[in-house]
Simulated scan of single mutants.
Amino acid sequence: MSIGNSPDDDRPSLEDDRPSIGRVLQQARIDAGLTVDEVSSSTRVRIPIVHGIEQDDFSRCGGDVYARGHIRTLARAVGIDPDPLVEQYDDDHGGRPSPTPAAPLFEAERIRPEPRRPNWTAAMVAAIVAVIGFVGFTLFDGDEGKQNNRVAEGPAPDKKPSPAKPTPAKPVDPKPEPSDSAIAAVPKDKVTVKLSAMDDKSWISAKSHNGKLLFDGLLLKGESKTFQDDERVDLILGNAGAIELFVNGKRVDDQFESGQVERLSYTKGDPEVG
């Protein structure tokens, strides 16, 4: 009898060489130039849960359904596709949860009410009212026909129709001359900033001069946001290359690259980056 390794020891280990879900989310957040606080503020996912997911600890999520939802939300906030991460989570946790079966029909819906017996008294009253109404209408219609015949037999009045008065034409309001641009009508005593996501989505944050948060979240492709303040607007663009920027009615022609994080400030007058 020889002592050696079992056949199972010679099999190659089937370890998943993919990086963990938490490491992928953490690296994507760092590449986007975002902090955990900024991601938590934009997604409404609490900071301890964000830290836990980045450490591959899903115990704070409250179950598989909530964990899958948090993974999708965080992946979109840092600009990556959430589907591969959700599939990886399902592989690591026993597959996708089965849908909850529909509840049985409420038994009371199956009980049909007993048919009501006809109300003969109400039917008789309705028939009597209908007969009285028909007789009254017949008598009234006959008297009215006689009066109409008497009027028709009399001489027709000899009245000439008065000529119709011409309706005076309303003065046409002069059309306003079109301005050079609708954006040129922005108020000069305020700072006006318009952001439009042209080629891709971008996470943006906008604050007023006193630090008040005006917006914090994702601007999807094709969407636009406009912000105003009396003195200054501070911006953070997570994907500056996808943003078309107008400040105080003028387009900013700075060439931002895709995926580039930019921190900008604008005041009244000609757009100048602070």
Score class of each variant (00 low, 15 high):
residue 35 T to G: 14
residue 83 D to Q: 14
residue 71 I to M: 04
residue 63 G to P: 10
residue 41 S to G: 15
residue 17 D to P: 12
residue 34 L to F: 12
residue 86 V to S: 08
residue 52 G to L: 01
residue 89 Y to S: 10
residue 65 V to I: 14
residue 52 G to K: 12
residue 16 D to F: 04
residue 41 S to L: 14
residue 71 I to S: 01
residue 73 T to Q: 13
residue 64 D to L: 13
residue 87 E to V: 15
residue 25 L to K: 09
residue 22 G to A: 05
residue 57 D to M: 02
residue 67 A to E: 08
residue 80 I to T: 10
residue 73 T to I: 08
residue 88 Q to W: 01
residue 70 H to F: 12
residue 26 Q to F: 09
residue 18 R to G: 03
residue 33 G to Y: 06
residue 54 E to Y: 02
residue 43 T to R: 00
residue 86 V to M: 14
residue 83 D to F: 09
residue 31 D to W: 01
residue 89 Y to N: 08
residue 82 P to Q: 07
residue 55 Q to M: 12
residue 55 Q to F: 02
residue 51 H to M: 04
residue 42 S to G: 13
residue 61 C to M: 13
residue 26 Q to Y: 10
residue 75 A to W: 00
residue 22 G to I: 03
residue 79 G to E: 02
residue 46 R to L: 07
residue 46 R to T: 11
residue 20 S to V: 04
residue 54 E to W: 05
residue 54 E to I: 06
residue 31 D to Y: 05
residue 40 S to I: 03
residue 82 P to W: 02
residue 39 V to H: 01
residue 15 E to Q: 13
residue 27 Q to K: 13
residue 66 Y to Q: 15
residue 88 Q to E: 05
residue 46 R to G: 11
residue 20 S to L: 04
residue 72 R to E: 06
residue 26 Q to T: 05
residue 88 Q to G: 03
residue 56 D to H: 07
residue 13 S to I: 13
residue 25 L to E: 03
residue 27 Q to F: 02
residue 48 P to T: 07
residue 51 H to A: 06
residue 14 L to H: 12
residue 19 P to I: 04
residue 31 D to E: 12
residue 69 G to K: 15
residue 59 S to F: 01
residue 16 D to C: 08
residue 44 R to M: 13
residue 73 T to E: 11
residue 80 I to N: 05
residue 26 Q to S: 12
residue 55 Q to W: 00
residue 64 D to F: 05
residue 47 I to S: 09
residue 43 T to C: 00
residue 70 H to I: 06
residue 33 G to V: 04
residue 45 V to C: 10
residue 59 S to T: 15
residue 20 S to G: 14
residue 54 E to S: 08
residue 30 I to Q: 12
residue 61 C to F: 02
residue 56 D to P: 02
residue 74 L to P: 03
residue 33 G to N: 09
residue 65 V to M: 08
residue 82 P to S: 11
residue 17 D to A: 11
residue 26 Q to I: 00
residue 89 Y to T: 05
residue 32 A to G: 10
residue 34 L to K: 15
residue 74 L to F: 03
residue 44 R to I: 09
residue 27 Q to H: 06
residue 83 D to Y: 10
residue 81 D to M: 06
residue 79 G to N: 07
residue 49 I to L: 13
residue 59 S to G: 11
residue 41 S to K: 15
residue 67 A to L: 10
residue 62 G to Y: 04
residue 16 D to E: 09
residue 32 A to M: 03
residue 71 I to G: 04
residue 80 I to W: 05
residue 79 G to I: 02
residue 77 A to V: 01
residue 72 R to N: 04
residue 77 A to T: 02
residue 60 R to N: 06
residue 69 G to N: 15
residue 86 V to H: 08
residue 55 Q to E: 12
residue 13 S to G: 06
residue 53 I to E: 05
residue 23 R to W: 07
residue 47 I to C: 03
residue 67 A to K: 08
residue 78 V to W: 04
residue 82 P to D: 11
residue 67 A to V: 02
residue 60 R to Y: 06
residue 42 S to N: 10
residue 49 I to A: 10
residue 62 G to S: 05
residue 56 D to N: 14
residue 23 R to A: 10
residue 56 D to Y: 01
residue 31 D to T: 11
residue 26 Q to W: 08
residue 91 D to E: 14
residue 79 G to W: 00
residue 63 G to H: 14
residue 56 D to K: 03
residue 55 Q to D: 12
residue 23 R to N: 08
residue 64 D to Y: 06
residue 23 R to Q: 11
residue 82 P to I: 00
residue 79 G to C: 06
residue 58 F to L: 09
residue 68 R to G: 11
residue 66 Y to W: 07
residue 25 L to Y: 05
residue 39 V to P: 01
residue 34 L to G: 02
residue 58 F to S: 08
residue 41 S to F: 03
residue 25 L to A: 05
